[in-house]
């Protein structure tokens, strides 16, 4: 699968502008992941995990700074881009903890999630590095961060085995299924987002024009400035309108 996507990755990472934008996005995701881990460290009662989560969070914050600094260096003089493109989900960065509700997570499932998330990131970053021969600085950034992600994979797995003892495999499978579910949610949301935009845009152009005409006429009657509120305004009503 990875080799099939290689030409696509190459295309995505070829343009300095897109490279800059993606690195800045990765910086945000890493920072977000760092905050999730800080939250996990604040909530856990296990002192070893608290220290590990904090150290991991610091790594993520450092990665965020590195991605950001490289992204800014690549993007000097380029105007910022608004909105997302298709390439954003074809070539993801680390997905943080997949919008996990840290507070509601069992320690074992949280560690399983971290392990899988870091594995995926390490794999992806290795792929990106392989198509970045033309940009040694960005390539070495991915190599460096990729190595960190491997450390994160290892510690999370070791801790998962400690915390869940015999149940770690089951937790990993459960986490894989949940990641699949979340992937479905992302895909479904993306498709539905497109469908809804198309449907509402059709409604907009088919249904709205006569109403828009009336609204524009009505607007002309309105005076600028203050609107005096009637003394009998029913401010006590508690109604929705």
């Amino acid at each position: 699968m990875a080799s099939l996507l290689r030409p696509l990755y190459w295309t995505i990472w070829a343009s300095p502008r897109r490279r800059a934008q993606k690195l800045l996005q990765f910086a945000e995701v890493e920072a977000e992941g760092g905050r999730d881990l800080v939250r996990a460290s604040e909530l856990t009662v296990d002192p070893v995990l608290r220290r590990l989560f904090l150290a991991h969070a610091r790594d993520e914050e450092r990665h965020a700074r590195m991605f950001r600094s490289r992204g800014l260096a690549l993007g000097v003089g380029m105007p910022p881009r608004a909105g997302n493109t298709m390439f954003d989900w074809i070539s993801p960065g680390e997905r943080g903890l997949d919008d996990l509700r840290i507070k509601d997570e069992h320690l074992g499932s949280l560690l399983a999630f971290i392990h899988l998330s870091e594995s995926a990131a390490a794999r992806d970053f290795a792929e990106y590095s392989s198509v970045l021969g033309h940009d040694p600085l960005t390539r070495s950034l991915f190599d460096h961060i990729g190595r960190d992600e491997e450390h994160h994979m290892r510690y999370s797995l070791a801790q998962l085995r400690r915390v869940a003892s015999g149940g770690s495999r089951a937790l990993l499978w459960k986490a894989r299924l949940r990641r699949l579910w979340k992937a479905y949610l992302r895909l479904a949301s993306a498709i539905a987002g497109i469908m809804s935009t198309v449907l509402l845009t059709i409604q907009y152009f088919v249904l709205l024009p006569p109403f828009a005409l009336l609204a524009k006429f009505a607007m002309r009657r309105e005076q600028p400035g203050w609107t005096v509120l009637p003394p009998a305004l029913d401010s006590k009503s508690g109604r929705e309108f």
């Binding site: 249904l207 709205l208 109403f211 009336l214 609204a215 009505a218 009657r221 109604r239 929705e240 309108f241």
Partner: peptide
């Protein structure tokens, strides 16, 4: 109830936008 309140409010608002009710 919310829809009814929205329609009633638009009808009574005195803003001359009763024609918006079908939409």
């Amino acid at each position: 109830g919310t829809t009814a309140e929205l329609v009633r409010g638009t009808w009574r608002s005195g803003s001359g936008r009763k024609w918006m009710i079908p939409l």
